[in-house]
Simulated scan of single mutants.
Amino acid sequence: MGNELIAKARAGDGEAFRALTEPHRRELQVHCYRMLGSFQDAEDALQDTLLSAWRGLGGFDGRASIRTWLYRIATNRCLSALRSAARRPAKAWDIPGVEPPEPTRLGEVVWLEPFPDALLDGAFAAPLGPEARYEQSESVSLAFVTALQVLPPRQLAVLVLRDVLGFPAADVAAMLDTTVDAVKSALKRARSALRHRPPGEPAPRPGSPAEHAVVADFVRAWESADIDALVALLTDDVFVSMPPLPLEYEGRDVVARLCAGLFGAGRRFDLVPTRANGQPAFGAYLRGPSGTSHGTGLYVLTVAGHRISAMTRFENGVLPAFGLPRSLPERTRPS
């Protein structure tokens, strides 16, 4: 059946081409996201991959599977994007009436975007290779994707293909037009350089009562601007980042000062739940004097045990990707 579909697709049958590629579409999109750290850039890379595959199907020799061939195209499209992209510049703090505390450090990764959980369906359908080292859920977490972005592009590609997807070294070498020895060397350097926060308490299972309890407490504290209740939810080493702002905060005290500054300026929010990168997330809406709440961004939480170990705040431009509106009339506010 596969050879028949390939023959039809080579003859220009678009439906046959879709039948060949559609089973791999979601996992390729997630692969591009891991490589690029940007949902929109991943979308663009996926479209480029499918267009290149359609145009280049005549050159597919069948020695590798269609899936491996598509990964080769996608990986090289992402490498080209990483080499040529003019990365978004860091943004300056622009919240009126709020002076942020001195950051713990300036972040290196300011172009990160979240990935909607709704688009993860089907992304993990293909079995991982035997040499994969990461759980599927960990491999899309914000902490892991952020850590990947610090790696040189070639090392990033090798680590994702080998340690996340489990492709054999020989397949990776063929995808990257290099040698197995070069792949092994790049993987060794990537593993050594990968900056990944040491694990704390394990996260509760997604959708579990334990996760629901932490999330509900966070919503109550944030919507009521209750700093004491919020601080009680944070781990000692809680980490807050706000791409494309380069400001990063680590530690309960400094995060408490940051949040107190926001609430002290009279800013009050409504939160609308969603999920991103396998983690609880919220559209954040700033209440206005007219009764309408305007979308200001998206918060993604990292839960460790019964507390919150990290929060990443993204700008409101990501809300449409999660099916969230730009504003909330008063009557539709969450109860």
Rank of each mutant, 00 (worst) to 15 (best):
L5I: 08
A9Y: 01
R10A: 02
D13V: 01
D13C: 03
E27S: 11
Q29H: 15
S38D: 05
F39M: 02
D41L: 15
A42F: 08
D44H: 08
D48R: 11
W54H: 00
R55A: 13
G58H: 03
G58D: 06
R67C: 11
L70G: 07
Y71T: 04
I73G: 05
I73L: 13
A74Q: 03
L79P: 03
A81T: 15
L82G: 08
S84R: 10
A85T: 13
A90I: 10
A92C: 07
W93V: 12
P96R: 08
G97P: 04
P100T: 13
T104L: 07
V110E: 00
P114R: 03
A126Y: 09
A132R: 07
Q136D: 06
L142Q: 08
L151I: 12
L156H: 10
V158W: 04
V158S: 04
V160K: 03
V172I: 15
L176E: 10
L176V: 13
L176P: 07
L176N: 10
D177A: 15
K184A: 14
R191A: 09
S192Y: 11
L194K: 05
L194C: 08
R195Y: 08
R197G: 05
R197Y: 06
P198W: 05
R205G: 00
P206K: 08
A216S: 15
A216N: 12
V219T: 11
W222A: 05
I227R: 03
P243G: 03
P246S: 09
E248M: 06
E248I: 03
Y249R: 04
R252G: 10
A265P: 04
D270G: 06
L271K: 01
L271R: 01
Q279Y: 05
G283K: 02
G291S: 06
G297V: 12
A304C: 10
A304W: 09
R313Y: 15
F314H: 14
N316D: 14
P320G: 07
P325R: 04
P329F: 14
R331V: 15
